[in-house]
């Protein structure tokens, strides 16, 4: 029965460490704001495996969107942000991953839209690596 007091000691020590880490993390959460940078990219392969299905955001022009887009994608670009964003927010269920794409790899439009979407803090936001060309080369 020597194991029981030992287990109690281990649990007590673990509890102290868990609490200390919790306090430090709470202080850090206030002092180091979490800024999810525009670096967050996701490959098409990984995006297609997302569960639940990601919310696709098309950051190209309306004409480009009309000529073809990822099935289910919603149009949202900086030029028409105000009229378009309510529809996106309505479709964006909490915790669902939003993936933004634009015309070409490295284009700035998707990064800008992703950056603004992150401010809503509704869920993770990624930029699709390769953009629309990754979907339809």
């Amino acid at each position: 029965m020597a194991g029981l007091p030992q287990l109690r000691i281990v649990l007590r020590q673990a509890g102290v460490l868990l609490l200390a880490a919790g306090l430090a993390a709470a202080v850090a959460a206030f002092s180091i704001p979490l800024r999810e940078t525009g670096e967050g990219e996701i490959s098409l392969d990984t995006a297609l495996k997302c569960q639940p299905q990601p919310l696709w955001i098309d950051a190209r022009s309306e004409a480009e969107y009309r000529s073809g887009h990822i099935p289910g994608a919603l149009l949202l670009n900086a030029e028409s942000w105000e009229p378009l964003v309510p529809k996106v927010l309505e479709a964006w269920e909490p915790e669902r991953t939003a993936i933004v794409y634009c015309a070409s790899p490295g284009a700035q439009a998707s990064r800008e839209v992703a950056e603004r979407l992150r401010d809503f803090k509704l869920g993770p936001v990624f930029v699709l690596q390769g953009g629309w060309k990754a979907w339809k080369p």
Binding site: L17, A20, A21
Partner: peptide, 10 residues
Amino acid sequence: AYYLPYLEIF
């Protein structure tokens, strides 16, 4: 993301 690093450090 906030908690685990401090647990490792402690």
